[in-house]
Amino acid sequence: MTRFWLGGYGPDMEGDAEGIGFLAVDDGRGPSTLAHRGTAAPVASPSWLAQHPRLDVVYAALEGAGAVQAFARSGEATLRPLGPSLTAGDSVCHLAVSPDGRMLIASCYGDGQVIRYGIAEDGGLVPAAPDRAAVLRAALFGQEGADAEQGASAASDPHPVPAGEEPRVSHAHSAIFLPDGRIATTDLGFDLVRIWRSRPTGLALDHEVVLPRGTGPRHMVHHPSGHLHVVTEYSCEVFTLASARDGRWAPVSATTVSQLAEVGTDFPAELAVSKDGRTLYTALRGSNTISALRVTGAGEAVEPYALADSGVDWPRHHLVHEGVLLVAGQRSGTVSAIDLDERTGAPREVRHTTTAPAPTMILPVR
């Protein structure tokens, strides 16, 4: 049985999920048997999930509660809390685990914080020391190289605020660990990609990559070529970043996710890469479509080449799994399975759709 943990929104986030869900496909019978098989762990709005690289431990961002929590596998389709939940920032919406399994990075949409947690040998989360709690919640800085005990957020918008407009708000949205050990995070509110170094005392800002005002960088993938592809929620683009010899990242190209995308109506969500690295997939909430983009050259640019129906309403997350694209439809309360062309990677027809409570994220079970 091919299995997945399913993140979702519960009543505190206007959804009907009762906790981390369990999704499965019967082996040998294909995606047509994909079905939601119940709740693996009761918890409020686990909107994003992340897997420990070695242990049967899953981390959940409890978005409505502003907390994070670890869960250990306790059965074929169940998880148990591995310690109590820990306070995060406002509307924590994304988690990333380091390749060595020693730290967790939480991105908080509501207040812009990026918070680092330690991970114990058993996979449990290590809370900040009590005397550092206030610093964790309120560390504000904008200077390169500044340290923050465990959590950090930017103090200022790099773009001038037009006369008569209200100041914008920082919205951290995702994180990814880079091969050199640094951490890249997006700030959707300030149109930034930040590069951090992890130090014994916490996170230190290495440098910032400023994208055009109003783009809204949301999620990222690190491509096998070494480039970083970033999808923007507001401008419907994919920016490709490259690292120079001095270690500083900078944009090298930008591409509209689809010629049919409508800015202000479509809002790209997840960005996923095919196993062979030749194709990127993003979902457009609004038109409820999936756009495929071909990676060109040495990975330094992408171009849209196919658009297909997602089979769901408000496709918040998707992943490529064994030649199929699985898509979580938050508003429709469904998960779809879309066939991918074996030769081109283009999304084809929706093979199957199953009901699921307000799904927001799909995570393969180890």
Rank of each mutant, 00 (worst) to 15 (best):
L6M: 13
G7C: 04
D12P: 01
E14D: 15
L23S: 07
D26S: 14
D26W: 01
D26L: 14
D27R: 14
G28H: 08
R29W: 07
R29T: 06
R29N: 12
T33Q: 11
G38M: 11
P42G: 01
H52K: 11
P53G: 12
P53R: 11
P53W: 07
L55V: 00
V57P: 06
Y59P: 04
E63D: 10
F71H: 12
G75A: 15
L79M: 06
L82M: 10
L82Q: 02
P84F: 01
L86E: 13
A88R: 00
I105S: 02
S107F: 03
Y109M: 07
A120T: 03
D122P: 10
L125H: 03
A138Q: 14
L140G: 00
D147M: 08
D147W: 05
V161W: 00
E165A: 11
P167E: 14
R168A: 05
S170M: 02
A172F: 07
L178W: 07
L178K: 05
P179V: 08
P179Q: 09
D187K: 01
V193K: 11
W196K: 05
S198F: 00
G202E: 12
H207G: 11
V210G: 03
P212Q: 08
P212V: 10
G214S: 09
G216S: 10
V221M: 07
V221G: 04
H227A: 13
H229A: 15
T232Y: 03
E237W: 02
E237V: 01
A254P: 00
V257H: 02
Q259S: 12
L260F: 14
V263W: 00
T265A: 13
D266R: 01
P268I: 11
A272W: 00
K275C: 00
K275V: 14
G277E: 11
G277K: 06
A283Q: 13
A283S: 14
L293C: 09
P304K: 08
L307I: 15
G311A: 11
V312I: 12
E322I: 00
L326C: 05
V327N: 05
R331V: 00
V335M: 04
A337M: 04
A337N: 03
A337I: 03
E342A: 15
V350H: 10
T353I: 15
T355N: 07
